[in-house]
Design a protein around this nucleic acid. Sequence first.
RNA 1: GGACCUGUGGUGCAGCUCGGAGUGCACGCCGCCCUGUCAAGGCGGAGGUCGCGGGUUCAAAUCCCGUCAGGUCCGCCA
Length: 571
Amino acid sequence: MRDLLCGSVNEDHIGERVSVCGWVAKRREHGEHLAFLDVRDRSGVVQAVVEGSVDARSEYVVRVTGTVTPRPEGTVNDRLSTGAVELSDCQVEILSLAEAPPFQLDDRVEIDEQVRLRYRYLDIRRDRMQSNLRLRARVNAALRRAMDDQGFCEVETPLLWAPTPEGAREFVVPSRLHPGEFYVLPQSPQIAKQLLMVGGLDRYYQIARCLRDEDLRADRQFEFTQMDIEASFVNQDDVIRFVSRAVLDAAEVAIGERPGEIGTMTWAEALDRYGTDKPDLRFAMTLCDLSTVFADSNVKAFGAPTVKALRVSEGASYSRARLDQLTEQAKSLGAKGLAWFRVTSDGLDSPLARFLSVEESAAIATLDGAQVGDLVLVVADEYELACHVLGALRVTIGSPPVGDGPHHYVWVTEFPMFEGVDEDGNLQAAHHPFTMPHAEDLDLIETDPLKVRSQAYDLVLNGWELGSGSVRIHRADIQSRIFRALGISDEEAQNRFGFLLGAFRYGAPPHAGFAFGIDRLVAIFAGEENIREVIAFPKTQSGADLMTGAPKNITERQMRDLHVRFTTKGT
RNA sequence: GGACCUGUGGUGCAGCUCGGAGUGCACGCCGCCCUGUCAAGGCGGAGGUCGCGGGUUCAAAUCCCGUCAGGUCCGCCA
């Protein structure tokens, strides 16, 4: 049907009679004797010259047959890859008519996302989505190649799985053949891949769709895609090596950038210096500790276990409104307030300045190499809250758009095994209950569980959490101790994870794994702030699909077949 | 569950602070003209419940309340 892609027509084809197919990007008519058609396909645009007028309007689908000809002197278009040539003496065959599209398909204006999503099939015709989706395909291919090279075996796991009531809220699928019973869609293939290790598969990977019924964000969709990995007879360093190789291969293919080895940082250090477990290392600001300086302070606002401070270079020029904004943000994150100090040539400028002792003033004025013109922000509170609040302010103040390079990867290691307690007063697993504690901390499980570090690790890129993984527990004795610490009885464990624990009785190899979000990775490579831009058919923040109208009612018949009934009236 | 931002011809904006006739700009669309354009050009034209509902007012796109949709964030995401 076609001989060439539009964008590939060039001087090499001069003199050839060729056909191209595509959409009319633009028609320019010059009376009844001459018209230009810009024909667009996935590869680009080529100009067809038509003697006489032609009724082929924007977005008509056409097949144009013409002779590749050098453009006349002075009419070469440097902005087109095909701009040195054109198709002349053209025959235009109209394959499909088109109404005027609801928005322009060129990239001259930003279109409201609501409209783009309603007509996603038109949006995908635009350069932005074309290049994002192709970038994603190249990343997928590079990841698969890297995993194959490293001896991994791609295995598909079920989408219809058993409920494991813990962690993220699950999407539920009623069973037709088993009245009153349900499948769930997997939050991740976590247990399946561990079973593959018991099965002796040794090294597994999958580009896996995961589904979580939790509220959506710029970097979170109900359904998202992870590169999911598990390997036997390996330790944390091995997994880090496998994943680094895959991600850096993808980076090289996607953006032609390949940093050396990815550095590591402990979770404790990330929290202390950056106030988060996903530090954005593209900019230098770090949190400082003033707890010792203010230990016996007279300043009431600083009477807290921890006093943390952040130097904002050249921040003294921040307006009062801007400082109020930052204070609001700090409060909304749970801080009692935010203290600010402008470093001026006359000393500190701040509502609190006159309450400070000489030593306290000096500590602030010289914080982190502070100079005249800088601003120092101080939060006093419990340790984690103070870190968290200043970490968020650090990002607000300093963080470039997520896609801006140079890209900065970091492995965050030694996460705590447990965090906080649930409604029943039981400890909660920070990662998941199959995570192996740090070997040195095993004795603390019963005595000081919150101090137990786990062999869990995250990969962070530009302040986004790409993914996480861990060394898994393969020994029944350690697993029972963890379940006990989590307040999960033997009976309950059997109930929830019986098939996994059963499998482990038949010879479980030591194993470890990882999973990282491909949507996020591609978004960053594409310079997009939002993963919807790298997903063909995403949902809105309220979980709606504006194109199909999902979620929708189903028929009475379907309800009956599935043995489900409304208890509250739908709209 | 909560906070904030946005909603004006098909599209992107301005108008809203400080109420006074649906006013303006750009693109698109339709018709006519035009033989080298490529963000083509010229002339003419069509196209609007100002998201929706209520309130205040002589008068509401504009002020107030509610609501819906979209977005960003907190909670949530083992």
